[in-house]
Design a binder for these strands. Sequence first.
DNA 1: CGCCGCGTTGAAGAAAATCAAAGCACGTGG
DNA 2: CCACGTGCTTTGATTTTCTTCAACGCGGCG
Lengths: 268, 268
Amino acid sequence: MEKSCIIKHFEHYSPLTEDDKLLLDSLEKSPREYRKNTSVWTQGEPSNHFYTVSKGWVYSYRNMEDGSRQILDVYVPGDVVGLREFAFNKRITGLTVMSDAVLCAFPKTRLTEVFAESLLLCSIFFMISATDQAILLERLVNLGRRSARQKLAHFLLEISKRLQKTNVIINNHLTLPLTQTLLADALGLSAVHVNRVFKELREENLIEQTNGHVQLLDVEGLREVAGFDAGYLEENIEAMLQQARQMQRKINGAGGADPADLGILETS
Amino acid sequence: MEKSCIIKHFEHYSPLTEDDKLLLDSLEKSPREYRKNTSVWTQGEPSNHFYTVSKGWVYSYRNMEDGSRQILDVYVPGDVVGLREFAFNKRITGLTVMSDAVLCAFPKTRLTEVFAESLLLCSIFFMISATDQAILLERLVNLGRRSARQKLAHFLLEISKRLQKTNVIINNHLTLPLTQTLLADALGLSAVHVNRVFKELREENLIEQTNGHVQLLDVEGLREVAGFDAGYLEENIEAMLQQARQMQRKINGAGGADPADLGILETS
DNA sequence: CGCCGCGTTGAAGAAAATCAAAGCACGTGG
DNA sequence: CCACGTGCTTTGATTTTCTTCAACGCGGCG
């Protein structure tokens, strides 16, 4: 059986027992393809599922009454989307794919069952939620207290860093499917100004642009411009997850041994 | 025995079983007082605890290299603080109290134990994390796509709404312990500009100000100015929590019935 | 071909920052 | 009781940053 995308994603955080894998697998419906610029959900819709991004780029946004909009976050393959509506029965933001993409849907109600059955998965979900928050916080700082050029430089560095986690980046060369209008909506700027800032960065030899592709020529320079510190992307979760695994073993031990859970670290 | 503050907080979301209450209570160390403008934790410190706010106002912030700072969120009595560092072993933001305050500390490592022992509490924690995110999202929109007067009006309405949840507000009159400098750092503005916008709102008879107190004279008018929609503050969690209670009963049912919960759910 | 979305550039204008100075409330110590 | 310092608010004048408006080029595609 081929590994589902959520298993691959979770294994990035911690080795899983066979039980955990089966549990995750049982959640997953068949992956669905979305064509460029189609909507996965819109504001106000009932929120019954969350998703993992398997292929392509996705963004969540909020439309304003005056016609403008704010892009809240951008997701790349490996990311989990929609956990934030756990506490809401309607979508508070929209989600659309900006390139051809593949997503897997999971019914939200089954989360509780997962929590009940696997302490490790529960902890990982909680951790994903916390990491999401960290990214939002940094974006908040970006919007509130940085200049246009800092905003753009910071955004580029963050995306590049996040892509490195689950995807390969060669020589700091990344394909950026974001139009300048999209970027503007993400950074709280006008599209025109984004264009000007891009020009600036090009002229300072910090980046290179060729139709949709961006190459970070001088990462150190960009870091200086942006005041970028990747700390907020570097979770340190071993302690918590180890604790979860340990407790799970205790529980299993009490109710009847579960051999699949011994020697966790060696399971593949 | 007096109810601990976290129990009061959690009961706001869902009735708790005696077991749940005991569990929560076991977490709580003695509340600690903080004097105005003292720090609870700072950036980079190890993050071993999370807190509930029992009295007073608190804010989390991020300091920038150039000396400016961004206030990320403001917390009022009843709020849970620090869950976002679940995935990090160092603080990614600072936290300080802006009025005399009382907070209760909880060791972070015990969260896993709580997750293992009570599905309901686990769900509530997850929900709090999700609601936090919703607030951050709205703040993001505020910073990215609203004018100064919209930002301020929106902030006032949000705080007022959030205070109503666990505290009483009479006649839209709220005591705002935020200085204009603090507000500026929260809204991504300069203190001078915040002052000017306050003046505008006063002159339009939308608010009234008398040393530290703000009265919202015309909530409807403010709502119009801000484009405020409280949807993001109105979690709808009954379905999820009911599911959690039901499953918990099933689990307990195996070992011994728990009468404290009269769930009414017709899930498949 | 002609349309449309996207990127680019220039010029003018608006929003908010910065700089500077003064007033006001409050607590502290003489 | 008053003088003084300190932190917060208020106001004006000036400057910076970014937006808005407008126009044009360019490439893809029906």
